[in-house]
Amino acid sequence: MTAPLRVIFAGTPEFAATALKALLDAGFSVPLVLTQPDRPAGRGMKLQASAVKELALQHGIAVAQPRSLRLDGKFPEDAAAARQALLDAQADVMVVAAYGLILPQWVLDLPPLGCLNIHASLLPRWRGAAPIHRAIEAGDAETGITIMQMDAGLDTGAMLMMAREPIEPSDNTSALHDRLAALGGQMIVAALKAPAASWVATPQPSEGVNYAHKIEKAEAQIDWAQPAGQIERRLRAFDPFPGGLTQLDGEAIKCWRGEVCAGVGEPGLVLRVDEQGVVVACGEQALRLTELQRAGAKRLPAQAFLQARAIPVGARFSA
């Protein structure tokens, strides 16, 4: 019986931790994990280890956290130490999932079987940092996971495996993320259990390429002149971050959920208020806001929100 592959794993958030757990549960040897340096987080801004680091430490796996992997870059000492750790690991392959650092060519060339990436898109539909968010925002009917043989480009490598996942009308990024993370874990295990000689790398099509730009906090601002359907998709795409932000009488209010409905009026005008929500006129149709949040407070269903903060018909939401 052939021994399981030795796998170096590079990843940072929960999406990546799900894949690492799947590899460990499947019996793969993981001698080394690469992950981003600890970052300040929370109200106290204390240094917080990544989800991948926490899982690796629980399993006694060596962890490297270089600030860069460029031997000629800003942190050459980090890159040199990481290079030695990678050499010492004597792994067959590297698996990368939402790592957050660019892999220079020397890293791509190091493992005998190369570097495989778990990408949350049906490539080349959404290359880049935020494929889950952008698929929901764009109104895509489906997305999926692509296992890709990495090259020096940004998500441009040849594809080894692909699986599709429907995007439900109620999906937000959090829900879709969790399904895709589980699917990615299943797929990378299947890929690595297959003999490497059986891997068939298919070049990505040159048509249909889109770039999934990183989500910026400024994108939270709601433009009520947009069609209601577009705003509704953005609310789901930006849940849990950064949400949808609007102003009412000088107060910032976060909008988390909405339903497209009939209504005509100046964009931002409150047309109706009832137990089901707050109906706001948009550039096309209207949006019934069903989950809202005041600054420093919890997210609340519209009915509970309105008990604490009245919103009268005729009020105007603004940017």
Results as ranks from 00 to 15, higher is better:
M1G: 14
T2N: 08
A3Y: 02
V7N: 00
V7L: 03
I8D: 09
T12F: 05
T12M: 05
T12C: 03
A17S: 13
A19I: 04
L20E: 08
A22G: 06
L24Q: 11
G27W: 03
F28Q: 01
F28A: 01
S29R: 10
P31G: 10
L32P: 13
L34G: 02
T35P: 13
P40A: 12
L47Q: 14
Q48M: 15
S50C: 07
E54T: 11
A56D: 12
A56C: 10
G60F: 13
A62D: 09
A62S: 14
L71W: 09
D72K: 14
E77G: 06
D78I: 08
A79M: 12
A79K: 01
A85G: 06
L87G: 05
Q90S: 11
D92E: 11
M94V: 09
V95Q: 00
V96Y: 00
V96T: 10
A97H: 03
A97G: 01
A97T: 13
I102L: 15
L103M: 15
D109H: 02
L113Y: 07
L116T: 06
L116P: 00
N117R: 00
I118H: 00
H119M: 11
S121R: 04
L122A: 03
W126K: 02
W126Y: 11
W126G: 01
A129H: 05
H133N: 15
A135H: 02
G144P: 08
G144D: 08
T156P: 00
A158E: 07
M162A: 08
A163D: 13
R164G: 05
R164E: 12
I167E: 13
P169Y: 10
D171T: 10
T173H: 06
S174V: 10
H177Y: 13
D178Q: 15
A181Q: 01
A182R: 11
A182F: 08
L183K: 12
V189E: 01
V189I: 07
K193I: 00
P195L: 01
A196P: 05
S198R: 10
W199Y: 09
V200C: 09
A201N: 09
E207C: 02
N210R: 15
Y211R: 03
H213E: 13
E219G: 12
Q221I: 02
W224F: 10
Q226C: 06
E232Q: 15
E232W: 04
G243R: 13
L245Q: 14
L245R: 15
Q247T: 06
I253F: 09
K254H: 14
G263L: 04
V264D: 06
E266Y: 09
G268D: 10
G268L: 07
V270Y: 07
R272T: 13
V273T: 11
D274C: 07
D274V: 11
E275W: 08
E275K: 15
V280W: 05
A286R: 01
A295Y: 11
A302W: 06
A304Y: 12
Q307G: 14
R309L: 03
I311F: 15
G314M: 02
